[in-house]
Design a protein around this nucleic acid. Structure first.
Lengths: 155, 155
DNA sequence: TATTGTTATACTCTATAACTATA
DNA sequence: TATAGTTATAGAGTATAACAATA
């Protein structure tokens, strides 16, 4: 054989890259959409709920911090926290040490909503994971750690 | 001790659910956003590029099939493939056996774009994966298989 | 001047409701 | 009637550009 190639539906031969990358990207994309599709009707969107959930678990953060965590622009994050604030789920507070900074915190309503919605959205996945063996669960736990490390890496 | 509880930033005790679920959801969400953030300027969005990539790898599909694969409504998928068609990356063809059905196929331009963009978006992740041990890569490969199974499960 | 955050505007993605065409 | 697909409309999420306030 002359060179490695991927076979495509139309017979195109493409330089294949690392097959593991493609498998992971497809798996991650499908899982993300599946989790997102558990969203209920009058619900917050996934971006706003993600921010609220983060604040509930980790405590107040500035706009810049939140935008870096989610890898969106500060302008985008400003609009997301605007929605949370307009709905009464989060509050803005000026940083006393540095008047340029704004700290966002969840309200009591926001904290309760974050806990409740996380439980609801995760329910179906919890059920699927309980069907796995201990070995398989261990594999997923280790994979979650590796994926976090890769996703959060600077480069 | 009386019952398991999660400790939160504000001292809230919540019934914890399966910690593995939360770890996986956070890891998947962060990785999805990281891959998405590799998007270039005049680029297709992630939904349209995902559909184009699928068609390039797997061959023509009907609208219904595509909407089920991505877990979006047929109306949403219709608009996504509309964008692909308007840009000349995909074509509609009436199914000769059943005139209600429409088959979508990538054009030559679309196939080339799918291959090129996949390579570009996956480059950074390929570099990160090459830094891992064979054992770690094996863990991720097995995890990708498990996650696909869970995400694609009917329930 | 540099940093932090916001607003104006536009595009992508998704949904629901109402519709057309085919079986 | 039921199925496959489309269009109209609206809201979430994101981006870039331009701006205000503070350091």
């Amino acid at each position: 054989m002359t060179r490695p190639a991927t076979s495509s539906a139309d017979g195109t031969d493409a330089v294949p890259g690392d097959p593991l990358v493609a498998e992971l990207v497809v798996a991650v994309s499908r899982m993300y959409r599946r989790v997102r599709s558990e969203r209920a009707d009058g619900d917050l969107g996934d971006a706003a709920l993600g921010v609220l959930s983060y604040l509930q678990k980790n405590g107040p953060r500035t706009l810049s911090e939140l935008s870096e965590i989610d890898r969106v622009t500060p302008a985008s994050m400003s609009q997301t926290v605007n929605r949370l604030a307009a709905l009464g789920y989060a509050v803005r507070e000026r940083d006393p040490q540095d008047g340029r900074k704004v700290l966002f915190s969840p309200t009591d309503d926001g904290r309760a909503l974050a806990i409740r919605e996380r439980a609801r959205r995760h329910a179906w996945m919890g059920a699927r994971l309980r069907e796995l063996s201990d070995t398989e669960r261990g594999t997923l736990a280790e994979a979650a750690r590796l994926l976090r490390g890769i996703a959060d890496s600077e480069r």
